[in-house]
Simulated assay, not measured.
Amino acid sequence: MAKNDDNLIKKTCKELGLTYRELGERIGYSEEAISKSARTNKISVPMQRACEMFLQIKELESKVATLNELSLILQKLTIKA
């Protein structure tokens, strides 16, 4: 069995500040399925891929938000010039 640090369900929930229910809702699984996978550290390939893709989506959303902020700053700087 993998260490808790290696448990993708627990890592995903902790990293994103989600409950098992919230994660399940976002990736299409029941709270019970998510909880069982977290407890046993037996994650199906589809659930693993859903978690990995969800993490990637969240990372990309964060990058887009940063780029939008940068764009606004650049616009303000060019208006003042």
Rank of each mutant, 00 (worst) to 15 (best):
S44G: 08
F54V: 04
S44N: 06
V64S: 09
K10S: 05
F54M: 07
S37H: 00
R26L: 11
K36M: 02
A50C: 07
E69S: 09
K11D: 05
L16M: 13
K3S: 09
K76P: 00
S30M: 07
I79W: 12
C51F: 08
I43A: 02
A33Y: 04
M53G: 08
T78P: 03
M53N: 14
C51S: 03
K3H: 11
S62W: 11
L16T: 09
I79N: 11
A50R: 08
T19I: 07
S44Q: 12
E15M: 14
E22F: 08
E61C: 09
G28Y: 15
C51H: 03
E25M: 07
A81D: 08
K42I: 10
P46R: 11
D5Q: 15
E61R: 13
S37F: 05
E15F: 12
M53T: 11
A38N: 03
Q48K: 13
K11F: 13
R39E: 15
K58Q: 12
Y29G: 02
N4A: 04
R21K: 15
F54W: 10
L70Q: 09
N41S: 11
E31Q: 12
S62R: 13
I73D: 00
I34D: 00
R39I: 06
A38F: 06
P46D: 09
E15T: 05
A50S: 13
I43W: 03
M47N: 09
E59V: 10
E22Q: 08
V64W: 09
A50V: 13
V64Q: 08
Y29E: 02
A33H: 08
S30K: 12
T19Q: 10
K76L: 10
A33W: 07
S30D: 10
S35Q: 05
G24A: 12
A65V: 13
I43G: 00
G17K: 11
I73C: 05
E15H: 13
Q75L: 12
T66Y: 12
I43T: 05
T19P: 03
R26V: 10
L18N: 09
E15Y: 15
K76R: 09
